[in-house]
Design a protein around this nucleic acid. Sequence first.
DNA 1: CTAGGGTTAG
Length: 879
Amino acid sequence: MRTPGTIGSALARFGASRSLLAGAHLHSHLLKSGLLASYSNHLLSFYSRCRLPSAARAVFDEIPDPCHVSWSSLVTAYSNNGMPRDALWAFRSMRGRGVPCNEYALPIVLKCAPDVRFGAQVHALAVATRLIQDVFVTNALVAMYGGFGMVDEAKRMFDEPGGERNAVSWNGMISAYVKNDRCRDAVGVFREMVWSGERPNEFGFSCVVNACTGSRDWETGRQVHGMVVRTGYDKDVFTANALVDMYSKLGDIEMAAVVFEKIPAADVVSWNALIAGCVTHGHDHRALELLLQMKPLGVVPNVFTLSSVLKACAGAGAFNLGRQIHGFMIKADADSDEFVAVGLVDMYAKDGFLDDARKVFDFMPRRDLILWNALISGCSHDGRHGEVLSLFHRMRKEGLDLDVNRTTLAAVLKSTASLEAICHTKQVHALAEKIGLLSDSHVVNGLIDSYWKCGRLDYAIKVFEESCSDDIISSTSMMTALSQCDHGEDAIKLFVQMLRKGLEPDSFVLSSLLNACASLSAYEQGKQVHAHLIKRQFTSDVFAGNALVYTYAKCGSIEDADMAFSGLPEKGVVSWSAMIGGLAQHGHGKRALELFHRMLDEGVAPNNITLTSVLSACNHAGLVDDAKKYFESMKEAFGIDRTEEHYACMIDILGRAGKLKDAMELVNNMPFQANAAVWGALLGASRVHRDPELGRMAAEKLFTLEPEKSGTHVLLANTYASAGMWDEMAKVRKLMKDSNVKKEPAMSWVEIKDKVHTFIVGDKSHPRTREIYGKLAELGDLMNKAGYVPNVEVDLHDVDRSQKELLLSHHSERLAVAFALISTPSGAPIRVKKNLRICRDCHVAFKFISKIVSREIIIRDINRFHHFTDGTCSCGDYW
DNA sequence: CTAGGGTTAG
């Protein structure tokens, strides 16, 4: 015969080990032997522990007169099994039956408190019944207040004078601080606890490790780790997991793995923490290996594991594995988890399967901010800009309780920039202001980028200035905007300001600065930036390296560009395109094409920009047949669709070569509306090949397409002049006067040392004007002796021949070259830049001058470079 | 027989 004590402890044991069969067997035995009434409370507790609240309720209902222990056990059965509303109902029933409140029921009912109002009522009850003196009750109140974000109220309970404190009180307080993002305070409480002589247990350790992680206090974290090892709590799975999490977040994956290895029974959380660490620190393959190791050890991945692993799949390009995981999740009914959905959307988007990403998104019953962001970013990245805007508007309409954040706005701004949709950019701007994101550097960058691409550099500058951003990222965006909008000088000024503020330039700033130098053709400044790159050891940076190639080419030094190109540690399609484009601009068409074939030999796939450079090389070298070959075969050979730019270039090539009929045929058959570049090319061709009919048509189109441009009138007048149609020419000139169109003043500039010297025609403002004109007169004599005859046809001024000759000889580029001659050592190359096309007469003159002074003269005009050496030009008079 | 504190993902 069993004694009552043994039956009670047997039920407790079965409950603890959740031995349902053994307990149920004992239950029927008690029923048969009529002993049930004596053990109802034991049975209640047993079923509660076996997670069978309904069975517990059935036992309870058979109790004729439940005591406070029966009631408390019932409340516990509901509360511990995820039925807080029933627990509250049971608690209220207990009170309704007049059963006195007790120190067992209060903590558990506090755990079920639906809101802080209810919690405060229980608090008042505890005060009224003096149960507040019970340490269990105060500890529960600390947890309750902490859970509702009232951590200071929790601290008041913790500090209750005369109140008892035990380990749970300390741990609860630390936890309350951690939950409320007050990790530094949590670490403080832990220190106080150690100092007071209370020995931390696994609960305290795990909490404080989390506090260290949250406050990124790795120093204390490592110290706590030491204590954990000394006290043997590194075997506790919760504490060890917190440590793995800490080292994972810190990025010390090796240490995380060391802690992980020593866990006697690593659970799925341990694995998840380590895998997450691998993923966030770029060890995608290691994360995938860990996933494969879990299965043989019998640890089943859960949604946490999968959401991390999906990110690893996307990062490692293991898209097939990712799809398998998706299939597995559908079978396991785990595909409606929001975190997993984010991983799936992100993975499909990175794989370029936006439709699959969209399906996952649409399937979700609820969508949070991060999920919206994942799809919007994916679409934006994939160039589906229209879809981005419609998603954004749908999100704002549907997700009334959703706010947006910097990620949303940055992605949307990327799309408004690509679409040049200024009104959408303004809307985002207003929204950013409303939610206080105008000082966020992501948003500021997006706005700057979007505004300048929408043609409003002024707004971009305003955003930058009002953001008061001192950070290097926003400054880089601003510099890029300035240099792209032909405000290279301001970009350089901004860089100098950054240096003054003590900001250390990174490779991005320097690359942007190089582009500014390129747009200014500032060779000397470009070399200085190169020196910065060397000094800061960014020479192996791919972006900076490509920018160097591009800049040197744009600044007129194809030799430096070639050296920078050779020095690139790895050459991507951008590097090759930059070099090919550079050679093309300098008239080295054959070398450009050779380089293109070397690129193909090395297995680098060209893109549409490469092909533009290739066509441009053919153009500058007059290689019409080669151009035709590339133009016609690019789709089949390289899978590249012909863009508007390719067509414009091809039409230019045909036009220059005098194949005006072929050019017009291409214009009529191309899948685009002819743009200004196309008509400009045709107008130029009509002048060279004396086709005034075509010239008139092209010019008329240009007058409507870009009425602000003055060059059209000039070219048309020149076309009539070249065909000897003087009356028509006079009409155009009259039209120019009447319509108040001003010719853009021709300007040339030259960089001597650190200073840029600018000249206009007949300029007399330079301090060394006398010497400059003296030099020109001296050269004039030598040129005349060598056989130079001024080509006055190019001048359209209504003056006589000798005045025209005088005007020609004082063109801005001549003044710049003369100044360079008198202020640089003999033999040094001369680099001059001009804002318009170089004039035909100056082109002839510089051939003479280069021979007379034995110097290389490099003129960059609006189209290309002209290298004059020993009486010839690199363009072969074909430009 | 009944009560309080801890871990992982986008």
